[in-house]
Design a protein around this nucleic acid. Structure first.
Length: 190
DNA sequence: GGCACGATTGCT
DNA sequence: GCAATCGTGCCT
């Protein structure tokens, strides 16, 4: 646990969103709640670059739901989908630019007892729901950590994003990033 | 107030 | 291939 107490600094998120999505691969998501600690290693992400990117929720403008994406980088955007799943995003870039990075898969490290590969399963395994929407991800409940130095360099793969065919030309952008050596990514295409 | 649909998942 | 299940955005 001590290895995961360090947090990614605000500057990590306040830069180009594709760089953030790529750099998040190999970092750790930590949730501490009532003495319980759940930790997962991030192995799959997707960048959403609204409002221009038609696959991004923020492409429809500033609404109650998308409000946090227009705010501070490093905060959580959590939404509810298909009547049963939550998805966790990290707000990136700068305030006023509604970009976010969807966390799609985690390798279990500590305290995770359910499958965590896939954005919905990730939230269920980490016990994340809309109560976390808008929180600062460098706080003391849910945070991102650089963890320990990797034994070997992370090999990054890229592909188009999953499930956004409706977004036309934007669906083809290779804005999905994953750890090529992980067997825990949510779908093949690597 | 009504309605179509979704950054998913698991079962057929 | 498709059902489950409901918040959101958009229309009336």
């Amino acid at each position: 646990m001590d290895s995961f107490a360090r947090k990614l600094p605000p500057a990590f998120f306040a830069r180009d969103t594709l760089a953030v999505a790529r750099a998040l691969i190999g970092t750790y998501l930590v949730h501490r709640y009532r003495g319980r600690v759940r930790i997962g290693r991030i192995v799959e992400t997707e960048a959403y670059l609204g409002p221009r990117d038609r696959a991004a929720h923020s492409s429809r403008g500033r609404t109650a739901r998308t409000e946090v994406m227009f705010g501070q980088p490093g905060h959580a955007y959590v939404y509810f989908i298909y009547g049963m799943w939550h998805c966790l995003n990290v707000v990136a870039a700068r305030a006023g630019t509604p970009h976010a990075v969807l966390l799609r898969a985690l390798e279990p490290v500590e305290g995770i007892t359910a499958r965590s590969c896939g954005p919905g399963l990730l939230c269920r395994a980490m016990r994340i729901d809309r109560r976390f929407n808008g929180i600062d991800l460098s706080g003391d409940v849910l945070w991102l950590s650089p963890g320990v130095a990797p034994a070997r360099p992370v090999r990054i793969g890229r592909s188009p994003r999953i499930g956004v065919e409706y977004a036309g030309e934007w669906a083809q952008r290779p804005w999905r990033f994953f750890d090529r050596d992980s067997d825990c990514i949510s779908r093949p295409s690597n």
